[in-house]
Computed example of a mutant assay.
Amino acid sequence: MFPSQKKIIVFLLISSLFLSGCWDQRMYKDLSVISVVGIDGHVGDIRGHYAYPSSNSDPTKYIVLEGIGKTMRESRIDANKKTEQTMDVAELTTILVNEESAKKDLYALMDVYYRSAQSPMNAKVVITKGSAKKFLEIKDTMSKEIGEYYFDLITAFEDATIYPKTNLEIAANLMFSEGRDLGLPYLNTSEDKGLPEGEGMALFNGKKYTGEHLTLRESIFATLLGYRKANFVELAYMWDKDDKKAQVAFNIINFKKKKKVLKDGNNIKIQYEIDMPVFITEYPPDHLDRKNVRQQLEKFIKGRVEKDIARMFKKSQDASSDVVGIGEDIRAYHPQLWREGKWKGIYKDIKIETKVNVNVVRSGSTR
């Protein structure tokens, strides 16, 4: 063996002594791996609820620890005293925040997660109608691990273009944004089984929940106008046609939007023009091979969509919540209209008009 080879072997043997393990290694058997956190109360009087699996063989079984404190960190310390293991949030998927708690300062409640290197920034942030605790009391109806359940639930809404993609990181950016406000999933529980169900988008003004939320349909148009179409968009209406009710359902194939900003003195007007080809998925009256029938249907869809968009903007403006991000475009492309610190005052009073061009391009396998 050559001397140089001996030196290499000795070097490798010595180096291996320093590779015995990671300095921050944590064993799962010593941890209570928290997958969902619920928050009730305000800074000064907080109740934190921490859900983690209680069975290795059955992921649907879990325990909820409750901690009380003046801060989120203190409530977590209190909850940690009630388990024989150390609580760990490295696999946190969802943070559920009581709507009343979010009205004061959402960021103050989230700060403990932003300051921890172990917190996953892709965790979903959700606003709940009423106590967050009741959203963790659904053990008898669970079909999967609770953290996976909530993550998949919100992801399904995002795929359907009901909510824009959101997580801890995105929420923090929007809470400090001057040109766009945060919109978060707003969940209620069903009356029969108490299961979580989407009720719309919670509207924020800065770090505070305004107390107002969009409906699911209005949330779709806020997402389409403020972000983009995700995997698919499905809509359904009832049409009082010829003294009869007709079901109209369709998928939006594409959603192209153009925006103009017009100024007349101190008055600002925003004009949207939208091209929206659709695929009809339900229409019992049929005969969509006839041009006049298609045109009537297109006119109906156009009218209903324009009304829904108008309602969405009115709610957003009344709540001083620019979830569509009009302010971003004003600041970037019309700096002469941007008044530092005064955008929200201007936003509430601007006139917004929308013109939708609907084109039925597919009508299914029947006429």
Rank of each mutant, 00 (worst) to 15 (best):
V64F: 00
F279I: 12
L214N: 01
N80A: 09
L187P: 00
E328L: 14
I95H: 04
A310L: 11
V43W: 05
E137D: 15
I268D: 07
I77N: 12
V278G: 03
T141I: 13
Y347T: 13
L92A: 11
A236K: 13
L224A: 04
V97C: 06
P120M: 05
L182P: 08
L297H: 00
Y272D: 08
G41V: 14
V126I: 10
E74Y: 10
N167Q: 08
G67Y: 03
G364E: 05
S20G: 14
V324G: 11
P53N: 09
E340Q: 09
K351V: 15
T223Q: 04
D264K: 15
D349H: 14
V10G: 00
K307P: 02
F232A: 10
R73W: 05
V293F: 05
Y150R: 01
L19I: 13
L109M: 04
S143K: 14
N251W: 06
E99N: 11
S116N: 14
T86F: 10
L203Q: 10
K256V: 12
K256Q: 12
A222G: 06
R304Y: 06
A51F: 02
G226L: 09
E328D: 12
T223L: 05
E84V: 15
W343G: 09
N292L: 12
K241C: 00
L109V: 06
N357I: 11
M110Q: 12
F300S: 00
I301E: 00
F2Q: 00
V261Y: 10
S4K: 00
S57W: 05
Y149L: 02
K165H: 09
F204G: 11
K351M: 13
L203H: 12
D242N: 13
V37A: 05
S35A: 09
I346D: 03
A249G: 14
L337V: 09
E353L: 12
I170C: 03
H213C: 02
L106H: 07
F232I: 10
V324R: 06
I252W: 00
K208A: 15
Y163D: 03
V89W: 02
D240V: 01
Y347P: 08
N56T: 05
Y163S: 02
L184N: 04
V37I: 12
D242Y: 03
D349W: 09
V324S: 12
Y186W: 02
M175A: 05
T281N: 03
